Amino acid sequence: MTQQVPDGDKRLSRREISDAVGDLGWRYVLDVVRTSVAVASPARAVEVVARAVAVAGADGERSLEMDVRPGRVVLTLRSPVTGAVTPVEVELAGRISAVVAELGLNTGTDVGGREVRSVQVLEIAIDAIDIAAVRPFWKAVMGYHDEPGASGGEGALVDPVGQGPAIWFQRMTAPRAQRNRIHLDVSVPHDEAPHRIEAALAAGGVLLSDAEAPSFWVLADVEGNEACVTTWQGRD
């Protein structure tokens, strides 16, 4: 059964969020809850978007993000104030799932049972000794903005129209020769991580470290270019 969502403005733990939305077909990934609704036509996609917007109402005016693609609509919820997930977004997920079901569709289920990847969130991580010195370049060249709530000139950068991955900066204490300093963070639902790692290893990848698992695993291709598979677990 889906866990009861706490009332009020109480800060939810990552586990509370994941448990509350899991049975609704939504997944908790990197401070958002996200789902994918498979549709058979653009007209059907428009129906899903219209119903989601209507049922979300004022609560979802800024919390709800929608990405319409051929064959599916991706719906994301996060608080515009905290940049995280609050009881408001969890409650919205339930309302949206209900109206999607009224259309004969499902949140988190693919049409015809075709195999597709799970929802995910992609970030680019850049290692830097002097973050304040390199950050303005990436902000300018990408046309990005400061992440809401970022301070001190070292916070993450985000795409103002929500199309590209966020960029964050990881401080180095000394230069590291012969190692890439830009890597991808692929944040996936916690139970998707083992499958994603298995597939990467089967494709020739190498597991460099699982010391911080299940928060993240460090993998690399055969030439040493790194990527991290991350989950919400192990972070509370």
Rank of each mutant, 00 (worst) to 15 (best):
2 T>I: 14
4 Q>M: 02
5 V>F: 07
5 V>Q: 12
5 V>Y: 08
6 P>F: 03
6 P>V: 05
7 D>W: 05
7 D>K: 11
8 G>H: 03
9 D>A: 13
10 K>I: 15
10 K>L: 11
12 L>H: 10
14 R>T: 03
15 R>S: 13
15 R>H: 11
15 R>G: 03
17 I>P: 01
19 D>S: 09
19 D>G: 02
20 A>W: 05
21 V>Y: 01
22 G>R: 12
26 W>P: 00
26 W>A: 04
28 Y>L: 01
29 V>L: 09
30 L>A: 15
32 V>G: 05
32 V>L: 07
33 V>R: 06
34 R>T: 15
36 S>L: 13
40 A>H: 09
40 A>V: 08
41 S>Y: 06
42 P>V: 07
42 P>N: 07
44 R>C: 01
44 R>E: 15
45 A>H: 03
45 A>D: 08
48 V>L: 09
50 A>E: 12
50 A>T: 10
51 R>I: 02
52 A>R: 10
52 A>F: 08
52 A>Q: 08
53 V>L: 12
53 V>C: 08
55 V>R: 14
56 A>M: 04
56 A>V: 07
57 G>M: 02
58 A>K: 12
58 A>E: 15
60 G>M: 06
61 E>V: 12
62 R>N: 12
64 L>Q: 00
65 E>S: 14
66 M>G: 06
66 M>K: 09
66 M>D: 03
67 D>R: 14
68 V>Q: 11
69 R>I: 04
70 P>D: 01
70 P>N: 04
71 G>T: 10
72 R>D: 04
75 L>R: 04
75 L>Y: 06
75 L>E: 00
76 T>G: 09
76 T>Y: 02
77 L>T: 09
77 L>E: 10
78 R>I: 00
80 P>V: 06
80 P>C: 08
82 T>F: 07
82 T>M: 04
83 G>K: 11
83 G>P: 03
84 A>N: 15
85 V>F: 01
86 T>I: 00
87 P>A: 00
88 V>L: 14
89 E>R: 03
